[in-house]
């Protein structure tokens, strides 16, 4: 029996590319969904050539909610696993002053991802199986001055995934929340990040792959982050508000 297809939403990112290669190397067909998806034609050829699987491209705009039902309908097959890697870091400075930009960050990290996963969750539930993966962020566990607009939107997504998992827990559909710490990608290029805490996109892909196999609920990519975030979340607010993390 051939393995079910894996849908990757927001397929243009480094993390998404690593995920596509990981699942393709295990024999899954791949559905890449992104805006201007034709720019991923070289990746499509690459994944298909290296791993001998079918790779299809699908135009998808996470912010254009009206197109989501048609997008799901248009997939060659309903995937067995759907991974949402859509996200936008933005710049905190801009997000503080320009509310249009702030709203775009919030919509890109929360509204869009939550809405498409909600649709897919219903379709998976109806079919009777499936795994949903949301790439959130450790930034969503506590708002910090340096990136709280991004963090707040990821927090919304974390809560959404948690609630969705709770709703579906008695059924066959599973939800995985991924909380990567710092990852070495285009998004973080030029940022001075501590090496010991920095994961490679391939590390994220390996961790997500294991999590979907073992049906884990919430994963961190580097285990050290679980400890770091436990400490950060345990700080009393009157102490936390004076930190600069």
């Amino acid at each position: 029996m051939s393995k079910s297809a894996v849908l990757i939403l927001g397929a243009g990112s480094d993390m998404a590319r690593a995920l596509a290669h990981k699942y393709a190397s295990a024999g899954h067909d791949i559905q890449l969904a992104a805006r201007q998806v034709q720019r991923l034609a070289a990746d499509q050829a690459d994944i298909a050539l290296r791993h001998g699987v079918a790779v299809s491209l699908h135009e998808f705009d996470a912010l254009d909610l009206g197109t989501h039902p048609g997008f799901v309908q248009g997939l060659p097959s309903l995937p067995g696993i759907a991974i949402c890697a859509v996200g936008l870091m933005g710049q905190q400075g801009e997000s503080q002053t320009d509310m249009q930009k702030a709203a775009l960050v919030m919509r890109s990290n929360f509204e869009g991802p939550a809405c498409i996963l909600a649709l897919l969750a219903n379709a998976f539930e109806q079919r009777g199986h499936g795994i949903l993966v949301g790439i959130a962020s450790v930034a969503g566990l506590r708002g910090r001055a340096s990136n709280y607009v991004y963090g707040a939107s990821k927090a919304g997504f974390v809560a959404f995934l948690s609630g969705l998992r709770n709703r579906l827990a008695r059924g066959p559909v599973h939800v995985v929340t991924v909380l990567p710490g710092f990852v070495n990608t285009k998004m973080t290029e030029g940022m001075a990040l501590p090496r010991r805490l920095l994961a490679q996109p391939a590390d994220v892909a390996d961790a997500v792959f294991r999590a979907t196999q073992k049906r884990r609920d919430v994963i961190y990519v580097k285990p050290i982050w679980r400890l770091i975030m436990a400490i950060i979340c345990a700080l009393p607010e009157r102490v936390f508000k004076k930190t600069s993390l």
């Binding site: 070289a42 990746d43 050829a45 690459d46 050539l49 290296r50």
Partner: peptide, 16 residues
């Protein structure tokens, strides 16, 4: 670093 095309007749691989 993407592989773009392979022709099994000639063995020619096109890659970045």
């Amino acid at each position: 670093n993407r592989m773009l095309q392979f022709c099994p007749d000639s063995g020619q691989l096109v890659a970045e």
